[in-house]
């Protein structure tokens, strides 16, 4: 579906269309598959559209509108996955009064496959997040936080494998350092570890042990920092076995997905879709 609301960018014509012999063979054999990734980040409890008189985003956003687009995509394509990159909580009275239940229930019925805990998902503490997880019919993933001795232990897995109508999709999550960001009493028992080491370990497992066709990382690290702090671009460059990084935290409205060479010289796609449900991001992948 193409109309004036959608903004398409083909960032790498060469990457998309210069086919190696293997790709040519797959194309001729008709075994090429197309995976459509739809994604959000930093929803921040913006279930309803922004007010009509909002100075920045009048009558924009709204999860029930995103649901319409997701249904349209699923009706038109055979391989669609819906993902989120964290900070679902905090931002409207829905969170203050219901603690995240409304957000999780809605995202479950919209058919989200997974999300990752962002810093604001700890705003009601570790127990506040753990108490809401029963309402999420999607996976909550993180590979670089350790939750031992907390009520989240065993409830947030580092990675998972999802079958999208015959495409084996590996999913994992990485999160930002919480110190100086989340008040210590809310997350003091969550241990942050190096996201690159953790993600590469999980991604290798997904590709080599589980035989995933594609590996997608849900990141709440942030798109770009000019100092040494780890961000999606540095993370992508140091990564292995990850094909796509869906970002969050910095509320970045990326005009188009960005391609970065990883530690093996392979292309990694980075994208982020603003915040507040103001955009639905989309990435098309060819899989042979």
């Amino acid at each position: 579906m193409l109309n004036r609301r959608s903004f398409i960018r083909r960032s790498s014509l060469a990457g998309a269309f210069l086919l190696t012999p293997e790709w040519m063979r797959s194309l001729q054999a008709g075994s090429l598959k197309k995976l459509v990734i739809l994604h959000t980040n930093d929803i921040h409890s913006h279930i309803d559209p922004f007010p009509a008189n909002d100075p920045k985003f009048p009558n924009q956003g709204g999860l029930a509108r995103i649901a319409t687009l997701v249904k349209e995509a699923r009706a038109g394509e055979s391989h669609v996955i819906l993902l989120d990159s964290g900070d679902i909580f905090q931002g409207t009275p829905y969170f203050n009064r219901f603690g995240g239940k409304a957000e999780y229930e809605l995202m479950s019925s919209m058919g989200y496959a997974a999300s990752t805990p962002g810093n604001h998902d700890f705003d009601n503490g570790i127990n506040g997040l753990a108490g809401m997880l029963p309402y999420a019919q999607f996976q909550m993933l993180n590979a670089n936080y350790r939750f031992d001795n907390t009520t989240l232990a065993g409830k947030i897995k580092p990675s998972t494998v999802v079958d999208v109508n015959g495409i084996k999709v590996g999913l994992l999550g990485v999160g930002i350092e919480l110190e100086g960001l989340v008040p210590p009493q809310l997350c003091k028992d969550v241990v942050y570890t190096d996201p690159v080491a953790a993600a590469n370990r999980e991604a290798a497992l997904l590709k080599q042990e589980h035989g995933c066709d594609v590996v997608i990382c849900l990141s709440h690290l942030g798109y770009r920092y000019d100092d040494k702090k780890i961000d999606d671009r540095k993370f992508a460059a140091a990564s292995k076995h990850i094909d796509v990084i869906l970002g969050g935290h910095t509320h970045t409205f990326m005009p188009a997905p960005e391609l970065v060479a990883n530690a093996d010289g392979h292309e990694v796609v980075i994208n982020q879709a603003g915040w507040g449900g103001l955009r639905l991001g989309r990435i098309n992948l060819g899989i042979r």
Partner: peptide
């Protein structure tokens, strides 16, 4: 790689 980027898009929700 067995995966190829074939374009991206976003939709403004309005």
């Amino acid at each position: 790689p067995a995966v190829r980027f074939q374009g991206g898009a976003y939709t403004r929700i309005d």
